[in-house]
Design a protein around this nucleic acid. Structure first.
Length: 574
DNA sequence: GCCGTTTTCGGCCCGACTGTTTTCAGTCG
């Protein structure tokens, strides 16, 4: 089985866990974690880099030693160091670290004192009350572990951004009504527009005597209060979503917002810059000795380390600090830049609303155009159109466009890319359309080579315009199909076609790192709603969030073009 | 284990809350 970046990242993560349990140097542990993150976020295949003999030490956090380990894993599928660690500690032991309250120190004690290295053994020990007498443990810790074990069995994991918003926004609005409260901001990965969030981080500024923290812990959707202090509290909502709230004084607002927005890696990098200038940066401000020199706004925090403001979506320590330093920060796309939408359905296939209703809703969004792209006949569950039905819709759209003012419906199709790479409808009908959106809806399990060839062949089709939801992933439900995305991006460049960033909250596909890769290659991305009803245009904000995470600017996005600018771009020249 | 406008050694972000402790280690974000 070929080794992918994620496989090597997982090995490094496991090594870090095991080293930590063995009480290794914390910076050595961090080096493995940093390398793991680099590999997960790398927009290209490290296996290919190895095969081409490219210099791995150019990657951030990869030095001679880790470069050698990467080569070893690529070439042998194994890592001798991990095998050696497994001789000292069982491989199952890292599972225990997932229990909140169990860190490396306690896991080590559990193993050495009670020979516990699986969840089942931990469960039995908890049941027999053998935990509470261990050094560093106690009765409360044992109870917490017991509770965590039952929750862990139901494994809640991460929430999609759109779902998190449904809990975060009402809570934030309610907090704003509490006396003495001045500002409430949802920070954390939510503010960075990550596709999923593990918890909700809320930053509050309030007057000294405000009851906001006590009120927060009495919010009526709370299932459990995990911790409750004067400035910081954590709760779990009935929906299982964890919410951390933090209260600071107004003069610390910017520093706290910066700290609470993250990412952790970005914060570390910024604090390190502060250190170099003899400054200490924490959530209360930027300090020179005892004196606060900045922190009321985020801008002031960045300014203190000689940088311009960096938008939250870029704060992942993926080059944004270097870009800021050299004045190369992108001017990120905004929702208002979109002039239209190139992927939507109506009642004719599996949508809920009529052509006219969809056109009107798009116009309400301020759009000049909306492409109607029904499914094709192969997708019978979605009532995909055959050539006759599509011809009928083409006529219908032509007639409707004569009545409409200020909005134009474009004639399109979301045509299935068949297993052999052919399109599901004949050229005789495709030629009558303004654009052809191609999509994979079947045979997700094909090998990487076959899946890639299938899509590349479809893109070679003379009428092919846009590849919809390029990876096919459904967040937390279906993994992306195995495909060489960089070859697809280069093919799009070569053939003059485009890739979609599908804004449905469970898709958000193209992934951010590939948006960046497409931008680098000069391939335009279309941020589409894939609307199945008039309500779905609201999802475009999530698509724009993802695009911003992918460093996209207005000019990198196809549907920021006016209709007049767009039309020649839809005509294939080869 | 990585890294360098303090460059091949000696650093590596910073603080809150909890529980088990008599002053702090562990965990978390």
């Amino acid at each position: 089985m070929p080794i992918h970046n994620a496989d090597i990242a997982a090995i490094f993560e496991e090594i870090a866990d095991l080293l930590e349990i063995e009480n290794a140097n914390v910076f050595r542990v961090r080096a493995y974690r940093n390398a793991s993150r680099t590999l997960q976020e790398l927009g290209k295949d490290v296996r290919t880099m190895v095969q081409k003999g490219e210099e791995l030490t150019r990657l951030p956090g990869i030095g001679e030693d880790l470069a050698n380990k990467i080569r070893e894993i690529v070439e042998t599928g194994h890592c001798a160091m991990l095998d050696k660690l497994h001789k000292q500690l069982p491989s199952t032991i890292t599972e225990l670290l997932k229990i909140p309250g169990l860190g490396p120190k306690r896991v080590k004690i559990l193993y050495h004192e009670l020979d516990i290295h699986t969840m089942e053994q931990l469960q039995r020990a908890v049941r027999d009350h053998r935990i509470q007498s261990l050094p560093g443990f106690g009765e409360k810790t044992e109870i917490r572990i017991a509770e965590a074990l039952t929750i862990h069995a139901g494994s809640t994991s991460r929430f999609k951004l759109a779902i998190a918003a449904q809990y975060a926004e009402p809570l934030a609005a309610w907090l704003r009504t509490i006396s003495g409260v001045q500002q409430v901001v949802v920070a954390g990965s939510y503010r960075r527009a990550k596709e999923t969030v593990g918890d909700i981080d809320i930053l509050i500024t309030a007057s000294q005597n405000s009851p906001v923290m006590a009120s927060f812990c009495n919010y009526d959707e709370i299932a459990e209060v995990l911790s409750h202090g004067p400035t910081r509290s954590s709760v779990v909502l009935k929906s299982k979503l964890q919410v951390d709230a933090r209260v600071v004084k107004p003069e610390s607002y910017g520093a706290a917002l910066h700290y609470f927005t993250g990412s952790k890696a970005h914060n570390i990098a910024i604090r390190r810059l502060g250190q170099e200038r003899g400054l200490k940066i924490n959530e209360y401000g930027v300090f020179k000795g005892q004196t606060r020199i900045a922190g009321e706004t985020e801008e002031s925090v960045y300014q203190s380390v000689g940088l311009p403001f960096i938008p939250p979506e870029l704060r992942e320590d993926r080059g944004e600090i270097e870009a800021a330093r050299s004045g190369r920060l992108p001017k990120l796309i905004e929702l208002g830049d979109l002039k239209g939408d190139l992927h939507a359905h109506s009642k004719a296939s599996d949508g809920h609303d009529t052509l006219k209703e969809m056109a009107s809703a798009a116009q309400q969004c301020g759009f000049e155009y909306l492409a109607i792209t029904e499914h094709s006949r192969r997708l019978t569950v979605a009532h995909g159109l055959d050539p006759v039905q599509l011809a009928k819709q083409i006529d219908e759209i032509d007639r409707l466009n004569e009545q409409l003012t200020g909005i134009t419906l474009l004639k399109g199709i979301e045509v299935d890319i068949l297993e052999d790479g052919n399109l599901d409808l004949p050229d005789s009908i495709l030629t009558k359309l303004d654009l052809v959106v191609g999509a994979v809806h079947s045979r997700f399990e094909l090998s990487r080579a076959k899946q890639t060839e299938r899509i590349l062949k479809a893109m070679d089709h003379p009428y092919f315009t846009l590849l919809a939801h390029p990876s096919g992933r459904l967040i937390a439900r279906r993994e992306p199909y195995d495909v060489d995305m960089l070859r697809i991006i280069r093919k799009a460049k070569e053939r003059g076609c485009y890739l979609e960033l599908n804004a449905q909250p469970e898709r958000l596909d193209l992934l951010d790192i590939y948006c960046q890769a497409a931008k680098d290659e000069g391939v335009l991305i279309s941020i589409n709603s894939d609307a199945h009803s008039v309500l779905d245009f609201n999802n475009l904000s999530f698509g724009v969030g993802q695009a911003r995470r992918g460093w996209l600017e207005k000019q990198n996005v196809l549907n920021t073009r006016t209709l007049q600018e767009l039309q020649p771009l839809l005509k294939r020249t080869m």
